[in-house]
Amino acid sequence: MDPNSKPPTRKSHQLRVPVMPEEALEIRRLATTAGLPVAAYLRSVGLGYRLHGILDHQRVEELARINGDLGRLGGLLKLWLTDDPRTVKFGETTILAVLSKIEDSQREMQRIMREVVLPVAGRKHL
């Protein structure tokens, strides 16, 4: 093969699909939600791939809740580490329980993040 020649290209065909203006807007919105250009979105849907949005609002709310829990637990731990008189009643068992809860929350956040970042048709996993 000549090193100056272009690599072979895949011959493609374009399909025309008439849509109403509001349908075009909705298709564009759905493509954006899936994180795809319109052509890739329509190709994927037309070939029967199941698409997922790139953002799952319910899961984001779960992550925000867990983040709040971690903030509160971190605040308790910080209070304990500063030898605040209010923490005298906390024993080692309580502190270890707080650390365990932080680790559990981190694992839960990681699990949810893996589920939230869904593979989109045509993209490779990172």
Rank of each mutant, 00 (worst) to 15 (best):
M1T: 10
D2W: 10
P3V: 01
S5A: 15
K6R: 11
K6G: 04
K6W: 11
P7A: 10
P7F: 13
P8H: 12
P8T: 13
P8D: 11
P8N: 13
T9Q: 14
R10H: 10
R10D: 09
R10L: 13
K11Y: 12
K11M: 14
S12Y: 14
S12A: 13
H13P: 03
L15Y: 07
R16H: 09
R16V: 11
V17W: 08
P18V: 04
P18Y: 03
V19S: 09
V19C: 13
P21K: 13
E22D: 15
E23A: 08
E23Q: 15
E23D: 12
A24N: 09
A24D: 14
A24Y: 08
L25W: 11
E26P: 06
I27F: 13
I27P: 09
I27S: 10
R28F: 05
R29V: 05
A31Q: 13
T33N: 15
A34P: 02
A34E: 10
A34W: 00
A34S: 02
G35S: 14
L36R: 07
L36N: 01
L36I: 07
V38E: 06
V38K: 00
A39V: 00
A39F: 12
A39E: 10
A39T: 14
A40Q: 11
L42I: 15
L42T: 08
R43Q: 03
R43M: 04
R43L: 06
R43Y: 03
S44Y: 12
V45I: 14
G46C: 04
G46Y: 04
G46M: 04
G48I: 08
Y49K: 05
R50Y: 11
L51I: 09
L51G: 06
H52D: 01
G53S: 13
G53M: 07
I54L: 08
I54H: 09
I54T: 14
H57C: 00
H57P: 02
Q58I: 02
L63F: 04
A64Y: 07
R65V: 06
D69L: 15
D69Q: 12
G71H: 12
G71L: 11
G71A: 13
L73S: 00
L73M: 12
L73R: 03
G74L: 07
G75A: 15
G75M: 15
L77Y: 04
K78Q: 11
K78N: 14
L79G: 03
W80K: 14
W80C: 08
L81H: 14
T82F: 06
D84H: 15
D84Y: 08
R86I: 07
R86N: 03
R86K: 08
V88R: 03
V88G: 01
K89G: 03
G91V: 05
E92V: 09
T93E: 06
T93Q: 07
I95F: 02
I95C: 01
L96E: 06
L96D: 04
A97E: 09
A97P: 03
L99H: 01
L99K: 01
S100N: 07
S100T: 08
S100V: 03
K101R: 05
K101W: 04
K101L: 05
I102Q: 06
I102E: 00
S105D: 04
R107H: 06
E108V: 00
Q110M: 04
R111L: 02
I112F: 02
M113D: 02
E115R: 10
E115F: 05
L118G: 01
P119T: 11
P119W: 06
V120K: 02
A121H: 03
A121I: 00
A121R: 08
G122V: 07
R123V: 02
R123F: 10
R123W: 02
K124C: 04
L126T: 11
L126W: 08
